[in-house]
Design a protein around this nucleic acid. Structure first.
Lengths: 148, 148
DNA sequence: CTCGCGCGGTTCCAAAACGAGACCGGCATC
DNA sequence: GATGCCGGTCTCGTTTTGGAACCGCGCGAG
């Protein structure tokens, strides 16, 4: 089984990981959320090689996560998050919560503040019926309609 | 700048990704949450090569995400999630929510049900002060104590 | 007009990561 | 004492990656 064939498995964790799960893709998206839009800006922000950046961006565009277009002033290219790309934000925030907890000995390098509010954003795993917070122990997987 | 040096950046998204962000690591952890504990079981569940599995497991053990030990019946080795590893679950659930939304045309392959409850678990990004759900647009990063 | 420059993008090659499969020592069973 | 399963290692050929040079385009300055 080749690695890309994992995308055929009926699993909503595996399938995204085939696209997002490599050294650079999520870092590129993190930069996108930070406002980076231009090829050269991605490259200098991340230190990724140009050839790698090129095919990662192309793959994200292929999957409809980023959109490539000429900027309004028409003198350069922009890569912007689509709706689908925008919805990746909770993944990055979940990573960040874990990173703040376990890989930030001097405290969080950044606060992610709620605009016009004193609070910070955090990821919670909740039950959509009873509304309580749950952890891995409280969850039982069960077959769903998309199971082949 | 070598790739591993990204772990020195003061960013709680980048630092975890240096450990978790490759083809296999999150898939290994997904299997761990599904109850897989033995070397050969990981290998046949994922289709990863033995050598790769070996150094991924070693790295996860190094980082305190998995713990390696002889099983109680002492006839084989077990890799089990530590507390630190257990706390990665919201990351996988955030990936799954996105996968269910965008990569599951036939509906979710699995429901992740709250034990003894009719509900399903989902990730939410909320403000810890006002309690409302927030999205990327509502968030403003701000320097924190861990910033070098 | 031409020169230089910044832009996104491509090509090339060496180095690193990876996959497949043979192999190993330990242990238990027959 | 042969067999089989276990976690783990070794070797080797393939794939992926990084680094740097190179390219065509549009632009603004001289």
């Amino acid at each position: 089984m080749r690695y890309e064939d994992l995308a055929d498995l009926p699993c909503s964790i595996t399938r995204p990981l085939v696209v997002l799960g490599d050294r650079w893709t999520l870092l590129i998206l993190k930069a996108s959320f930070a406002g980076v839009r231009r090829f050269n800006a991605f490259q200098s922000a991340l230190g990724i090689s140009r050839s790698r950046l090129q095919d990662r961006l192309a793959r994200l565009v292929d999957h409809g996560i980023l959109a490539r277009r000429q900027a309004d002033d028409a003198d350069h290219v922009e890569y912007r998050l689509t709706r689908k790309g925008h919805d990746i934000y909770p993944i990055l925030m979940a990573i960040r919560d874990w990173g703040d907890t376990y890989m930030a000995p001097d405290g969080p390098p950044a606060h992610y503040r709620h605009r016009d509010c004193t609070g910070e954003a955090h990821v919670r795993l909740t039950c959509d019926a009873c509304g309580t917070d749950v952890t891995a122990h409280d969850i039982v997987p069960e077959a769903g309609p998309g199971l082949s």
